[in-house]
Design a binder for these strands. Structure first.
Lengths: 128, 128
DNA sequence: CTCTTATTTAGAATAATTCTTGATCTAAAC
DNA sequence: GTTTAGATCAAGAATTATTCTAAATAAGAG
């Protein structure tokens, strides 16, 4: 844990509820440590995420993907075979029911993505 | 529905299971209509998404956001007050249980985001 | 056919993120 | 207290996805 990482972590502790972007973290971090650079903030955010100290809200960086499946479904990205699978809902299940939503809120769109090992592809099965 | 939109839609019907990016759609679309441009593919994907004919897998475009909350939680983006809220799990609920995951698959990370109207902020409550 | 309006095209512009390279810091060995 | 090796940092260039712009095109109404 370097000084820079500590600063970035402290900033996230302080304003994390606002779900800041890297640039927003950078602005706050610069107040506490004027010499820090944006690249360092990116590095620190990556290290802290890797260490499990913070979370990245959007795990699907890269380009936006499109999908013609209009039924409710989640996307599973296999880190092993590098493919995206559609995962359907269990019959009768409601994906939003597990979440403690505030009263009066209306969901227009929901996006569920998972990352892991699919276990079904040849590559994952054989460990190739 | 213009010819270009039809082509883009057809491409998505054909290779949608691969969850293509805009560039990948562009490559396929160009085989069917060599004059089509990348900008048009973007336009068509936007129109088709707006019309509900296809879905965008990643609703969180813009910069990645970070968050120090390590407990399982979803993110709710309010389209009205433009803020992101943490939504906790209902007590005892398991977010992955509602999804029909293939046997043997292991989830390393899960990301749930919703978009809608939160109904709790002054702006949403008053319609300001 | 002609006007109107929306769409397409190509390329420039933008914005987030990553990469590169040299500088700096840290900690252990001497 | 130096030296040295390795990790980390800083600054800016480079990359990549996406959006914007302006001119060309197409399609429908009259």
């Amino acid at each position: 844990m370097t000084k820079q990482r500590q600063v970035v972590f402290d900033v996230l502790e302080a304003i994390g509820h606002e779900h800041p972007t890297a640039s927003e973290v950078f602005v706050q971090a610069k107040e506490r440590m004027p010499t820090i650079s944006l690249a360092t903030v990116y590095n620190c955010l990556e290290s802290l995420t890797g260490a499990g100290a913070i979370r990245q809200v959007n795990i699907e960086r890269e380009a936006t993907r499109y999908c013609p499946n209009l039924r409710p479904h989640a996307h599973f990205y296999c880190i092993d075979c590098d493919k995206v699978f559609d995962i359907g809902l269990e019959s009768g299940a409601d994906a939003s029911a597990v979440w403690a939503l505030p009263p009066g809120c209306r969901i227009e769109e929901m996006n569920v993505s998972m990352r892991g090992v699919c276990g079904t592809c040849p590559r994952c099965g054989s460990g190739d």
